[in-house]
Design a binder for these strands. Structure first.
Length: 480
RNA sequence: CGGGGCGUGGCUCAGCCUGGUAGAGCGCCUGGUUCGGGACCAGGAGGCCGGAGGUUCGAAUCCUCUCGCCCCGACCA
């Protein structure tokens, strides 16, 4: 037994997740710093793919990247009342520097709305400066009490978009545009289906008018907020005095948005697709899509096999596992745990027959094919995997979405659901957007995930708590 | 912050109750035989037992304090 086995999902989903992260060589707990993790090469490569996919789309929608300071004067946080209330409990504060106590402490950014507000007020004077469309790739710190690798760590990597507009309409368009970008990356690249919607007032970002989110469903049925896009209204504009002069010569505050996704997405990716054998990556997320495991005994066999392997590897852009001192079996397990989409086996028998063995990670299907067909077969298999993995996840989401018409029913369905045991559902119910109702749902540790932008159900109905007429059903679930 | 668990070679842990020369498996190094789903044999390197104080002739073991990590809840991307 070369490396520790992975706890089956059935037995304990939370432990399974940790095992997959560690065995897949994605990350490990930092241990020396509370709640932090070390993202290892295999995990960081996945983040780099995500960065590339997102960044390309940000640029295509007119955004530019900037970088702002990690430290924020403490007083900045207090300028927006809701914002400070929302973030105060989880701030890490720098009180000493240069061997002296600081006159005014700095907080380590939990997010950058305030510092952006400050600079927007410097940079924006005229309607000609608008819209201002910026994005920042950065790390932030939120002192969470409970952490899980990728899903919630004290320090995490993310991108935060910050934009300023001259009208609310335009800002709203931006909010939805970026939510769509997130949904596209989640579904088309990560093969992770999401539900787009508006957060309830109780669940919105501290300081926003409204927040929008994409919510995905993990294999245990728990919801994961995979991305958010906020309509900040003029709240930060007013707090930081970001005014512009309109065409008509009138002064007005800018309308802002902010939006972000984080390394949490990697957690979502893992919990959407992986299995009891380890990590499973959709082809578009795999930095290493094809690996060849050469098989041979004697030196003359080795020469023949390696020559054929090198030729085929070049043809399909594969990595050859040339490590010595490991049996082929050990190599198969190695790549399987790391989620490589396609593993090719090539031994003397195959070379003699002009064949090669192709195995796909998601289904475990193994096939012997002529080497001449390899390139076509690889391309076709990668495409099929991407498609099938999305379908499978989509099906699971549908199978585990249920309708409920009373609070008792909702509670019945979700009461015993935990991250470890699983059994989670998305429960569609009519509920009025009122913090009191959110609180009632919280009593059994569930929450309103969002109010879907597209109502796929029966339209208006009576709120399961107040009985008032509401426009549509909302998503209620246990979540990470 | 409440509850639980845990700090002993790189990793997983045993030893602690009942104080007396620091152990195992895995990994690592060397050599040989292996190699189509986690190979085997032989030899070898590697630890002031989380930290501080105390009890004792003697502490990984007993006592006090302390630091940290993990898991479960409340908070949250």
């Amino acid at each position: 037994m070369a490396e520790s086995p992975i706890t089956p999902r059935e037995k304990d989903f939370a432990t399974w997740y940790q095992d997959v992260v560690i065995q897949g060589d994605m990350a490990e707990p930092a241990e020396i710093v509370k709640g932090c993790m070390v993202i290892k090469p295999n995990g960081y490569a996945v983040w780099e793919v995500l960065q590339r996919e997102l960044d390309t789309r940000f640029k295509a929608t007119g955004h530019q990247n900037v970088y702002l300071p990690l430290l924020i004067p403490e007083s900045f946080l207090t300028k927006e009342a809701e914002h400070v209330e929302g973030f105060s409990p989880e701030l890490a504060v720098v009180t000493h520097a240069g061997g002296k106590k600081l006159e005014e402490p700095y907080v380590i950014r939990p997010t950058s709305e305030t510092i952006v507000g400050h600079f927007f007020s410097k940079w924006i004077q005229s309607h000609r400066d608008l819209p201002m469309l910026l994005n920042q790739w950065a790390n932030v710190i939120r002192w969470e009490l409970r952490t899980r690798m990728f899903l919630r760590t004290t320090e995490f990597l993310w991108q935060e978009g910050h934009t300023a507009h001259s009208t609310h309409e335009e800002a709203l368009e931006e909010v939805i545009r970026m939510l769509d970008v997130y949904a596209e990356v989640a579904e088309d690249v990560m093969a992770m289906p999401v539900v787009k919607g508006v957060k309830t007032r109780a669940e919105k970002f501290a300081g926003a008018l409204r927040s929008y989110s994409i919510e995905s469903m993990m294999q245990n049925g728990l919801a994961l907020q995979a991305g958010t896009s906020h309509d900040l209204g003029q709240n930060f504009g007013k707090a930081f005095d970001v005014q512009f002069q309109s065409k008509e010569g009138k002064l007005d505050y800018v309308w802002q948005t902010s939006w972000g996704v984080s390394t949490r997405l990697i957690g979502g990716l893992i919990m959407t697709h992986s299995d009891d054998k380890g990590l499973v990556l959709p082809p578009k997320m795999a930095h290493r899509k094809v690996v060849i495991v050469p098989i041979f005994r004697k030196d003359d066999e080795k020469a023949i096999v390696m020559e054929a392997a090198a030729k085929l590897a070049k043809e399909v852009g594969a990595h050859i596992d040339t490590r010595e001192g490991h049996s082929p079996g050990a190599k198969f397990f190695h790549w399987e745990r790391r989620g490589v989409p396609i593993v090719l086996e090539l031994g003397p028998r195959d070379v003699a027959a002009g064949n090669i063995v192709i195995k796909r990670r998601d289904t475990g299907t193994k096939e012997v094919i002529p080497q001449t067909e390899l390139a076509a077969k690889v391309a076709e298999t990668l495409e099929a995997m991407q498609r099938d993995m999305f379908s499978k996840a989509k099906q699971r989401l549908q199978d585990n979405t249920v309708v409920a018409n009373s609070i008792g029913e909702v509670r019945e369905i979700l009461d015993d659901v935990t991250a470890e045991k699983g059994g989670g559902k998305f429960v569609m119910a009519h509920l009025k957007d009122d913090p009191a109702n959110d609180a009632a749902i919280k009593e059994f540790r569930a929450s309103v995930r969002n109010i879907p932008l597209v109502d796929e159900y029966d339209g208006p109905g009576k709120c399961i708590i107040t009985g008032e007429e509401v426009a549509q059903r909302v998503v209620i679930a246990k979540s990470y």
